[in-house]
Amino acid sequence: MVAGKPRVEQRVRAVVRARLRDNLGERDICLIDISTRGLLATAARPPVRGDFVEIIVGRNRMTAQVKWTSERRFGLLLRERVSIPAMIEGGKASVMLAAARSATAVRGKASADWLNPLVLARAGQLGLMLLAVAGVGMLLTELVAGGLNPVREAVEAASH
């Protein structure tokens, strides 16, 4: 933790046996601190900072990135959120949590879609096409109205 910077979420002290798989092979580790997004672990040979590793707890496999290492301890950032109680129980049940609903998802999926750059680009294209169609419509209206002026004048002359 950076000095003066609060933790993003609460951590729970635990002692959970797990396995770590990296480019050096597979080995035992012990999880000593668990949050839904990260782990503090110990091992005789910690993995290299920045590496992506696989953590095996019970029948569960998780991908994590090594955020820091020391002589025997290391911190892992998990790719998916996990259930702390399921991790503490040794992964007998699934430890993966369902994806959390963001504030935009709560307001509705349509509002979240507008944040997608592809949707924004398509909306811009549609807007330009509508402007072009409106412009062509106005031009045709002027042409048709201008072309009917001689007929209108003849009708007015005949009626007088």
Results as ranks from 00 to 15, higher is better:
Ala132Val: 12
Val2Phe: 13
Leu143Cys: 07
Ala110Thr: 00
Pro6Tyr: 02
Arg81Asn: 13
Glu156Tyr: 11
Lys92Trp: 09
Val82Gly: 08
Ile56Lys: 12
Val151Tyr: 09
Arg45Glu: 04
Lys67Glu: 07
Ala157Leu: 10
Glu153Met: 08
Leu31Met: 10
Ser83Asn: 06
Ile29Phe: 02
Gly108Tyr: 00
Arg152Ile: 15
Arg27Lys: 14
Asn23Glu: 09
Lys92His: 11
Pro117Lys: 10
Ala14Arg: 00
Ala158Val: 11
Gly25His: 05
Val106Arg: 12
Met1Gly: 14
Leu131Asn: 10
Ala100Asn: 04
Arg45Asn: 04
Val119Thr: 05
Thr104Lys: 07
Arg61Cys: 07
Ser35Phe: 15
Phe74Gly: 10
Leu130Cys: 02
Arg19Met: 14
Glu71Leu: 14
Ser94Val: 07
Leu24Ile: 13
Leu77Gln: 15
Lys109Trp: 02
Phe74Leu: 13
Ile32Ser: 04
Asp113Thr: 03
Thr42Tyr: 10
Arg49Val: 11
Ile32Asn: 02
Ala93Glu: 13
Glu156Met: 14
Arg107Gly: 02
Glu80Tyr: 12
Ile88Tyr: 02
Pro47Asp: 12
Leu130Asn: 02
Ala103Tyr: 05
His160Met: 11
Gly58Ala: 00
Leu76Ala: 12
Val136Gly: 05
Ala157Gln: 05
Leu118Cys: 00
Thr36Ser: 09
Leu126Glu: 06
Ile56Val: 14
Arg101Asn: 02
Val48Thr: 14
Val57Ile: 14
Arg17Ala: 13
Ser83Arg: 06
Gly50Pro: 00
Leu97Thr: 07
Lys67Cys: 03
Leu140Thr: 10
Arg7Ile: 06
Arg59Lys: 03
Phe52Met: 07
Leu118His: 02
Arg61Asn: 07
Gly91Arg: 08
Ala145Pro: 04
Leu148Ile: 04
Leu77Trp: 12
Pro117Phe: 09
Asn60Phe: 13
Thr63Val: 08
Ala154Gly: 06
Pro47Glu: 11
Lys67Val: 10
Val12Lys: 15
Gly137Thr: 11
Arg107Asn: 06
Arg7Ser: 09
Gly50Thr: 01
Leu40Gly: 11
Glu80Arg: 15
Leu31Glu: 03
Gly4Val: 13
Met62Glu: 01
Leu115Asn: 01
Leu130Arg: 07
Ile88Val: 15
Ile55Asn: 11
Val151Asn: 03
Arg7Ala: 12
Val66Trp: 09
Arg7Gly: 04
Ser94Asn: 13
Ala44Ser: 06
Gly135Glu: 03
Gln65Met: 15
Arg45Cys: 02
Val16Met: 01
Trp68Asn: 07
Asn116Leu: 13
Ala100Gln: 06
Val15Tyr: 00
Ala41Lys: 11
Glu89Trp: 10
Ala64Phe: 04
Val53Thr: 03
Ala112Tyr: 00
Ile84Asn: 09
Val119Ser: 01
Ala132Trp: 12
Ala132Phe: 14
Arg21Trp: 10
